[in-house]
């Protein structure tokens, strides 16, 4: 009897521990979906134009503010706000490509890199001027219910964010792989001259890359606006995390970006759970260094020959 009881107790205890681990993994998956969206923008940009775009997180922030403007201030329906926000931020992205990057196209990479950092500063400070320095709270869009699945608590709004992010990733991937337009842009990313010879408009392809990567950031920003507080300077941390996720999965790899995002989120949460929250970022960035040293093409990407 006592044996039975203790066996039951052990089972209950390990079940609880498993629930705790699952809870941490779920937390990682939800923030990882957001990292993945940002990583996607990074990877797309890097693959198409060899640029590490340091304003990626700021387009994300801009998306949140656009959503606030359309939904909260103007009062449009949420679905329309999502579309308009994404479209507007994409246009801003294209605008920056024409004004801030295109003139530098023929100069050294580092100039464009600096220009992206400048874009980030411009976006942060203009947002602070337009929407004020204080944080905004977006109204509740998704249900505030919390599901209890065998002791693992999952807020319903997080499920929506993850589903939204995954849908965007899948649609985007399908667009690049399956449609003629997508294939054309991939070709332009691989070999500009050859693609042009085959009838791909480079002007359009460049605009597409910048527009889409800004739009990807924006739609992520719109998605998370209801679950995070929106501040003009929130982009920085997402730039950092998105970039890390992209490198983790292999900078330039679309699938790698998605996997890298989820992996980063889960790793962060597990290192907090089992080691210490004080070392959370240290552990993740140490891992990033290791990957850069020993597998610079990322965990998922096939090793490729250096572009000449």
């Amino acid at each position: 009897m006592s044996l039975l009881q203790s066996v039951a107790a052990i089972h209950a205890k390990s079940a609880m521990e498993i629930a705790q681990i699952v809870q941490q993994v779920m937390g990682g998956v939800s923030i990882g979906a957001i990292y993945g969206l940002l990583a996607l923008g990074f990877s797309l940009m890097f693959r198409a134009s060899n640029i590490v775009h340091f304003a990626q997180g700021d387009f994300f922030m801009l998306g949140s503010y656009a959503a606030i403007t359309f939904y909260l201030i103007i009062g449009l329906p949420f679905w329309l706000s999502v579309i308009l926000s994404t479209a507007c931020v994409s246009l801003v992205g294209i605008g920056f490509e024409k004004i801030a990057y295109k003139p530098l196209w023929k100069s050294h990479h580092s100039f464009i890199l600096m220009s992206t950092a400048a874009t980030s500063i411009v976006l942060q400070n203009s947002s602070s001027l337009i929407w004020g320095p204080d944080a905004w709270r977006f109204p509740q869009i998704f249900s505030d219910r919390i599901l209890d699945v065998f002791g693992v608590l999952i807020p319903v709004e997080i499920i929506w964010v993850v589903i939204g992010a995954v849908i965007i990733m899948v649609v985007f991937n399908a667009f690049l792989q399956k449609t003629k337009l997508g294939k054309g842009f991939r070709a332009a990313a691989q070999d500009r001259e050859m693609a042009q010879g085959m009838g791909v408009s480079l002007l359009l392809a460049d605009s597409f890359v910048f527009g889409i990567s800004a739009g990807l950031g924006a739609v992520g920003g719109v998605l998370v606006a209801p679950i995070l507080f929106v501040t003009p300077y929130m982009g920085l941390i997402f730039t950092l995390k998105g970039f890390t996720a992209a490198v983790l999965g292999g900078l330039g790899s679309i699938r790698g970006a998605i996997v890298g995002g989820f992996l980063l989120g889960v790793m962060e949460n597990l290192s907090t759970a089992f080691i210490s929250s004080a070392y959370k970022d240290a552990i993740v960035f140490a891992l990033l260094l290791l990957i850069l040293l020993f597998k610079p093409s990322g965990l998922l990407a096939k090793p490729t020959a250096e572009k000449i």
């Binding site: 941490q24 990682g28 939800s30 300077y233 907090t272 959370k280």
Partner: peptide, 19 residues
């Protein structure tokens, strides 16, 4: 437990504290 200024997600720390 600790976190960095600018962090947006605290689920990991909070779950640990809860448990």
């Amino acid at each position: 437990e600790s976190y960095n200024i600018g962090d947006k997600d605290f689920a990991a720390q909070l779950n640990k504290i809860k448990n």
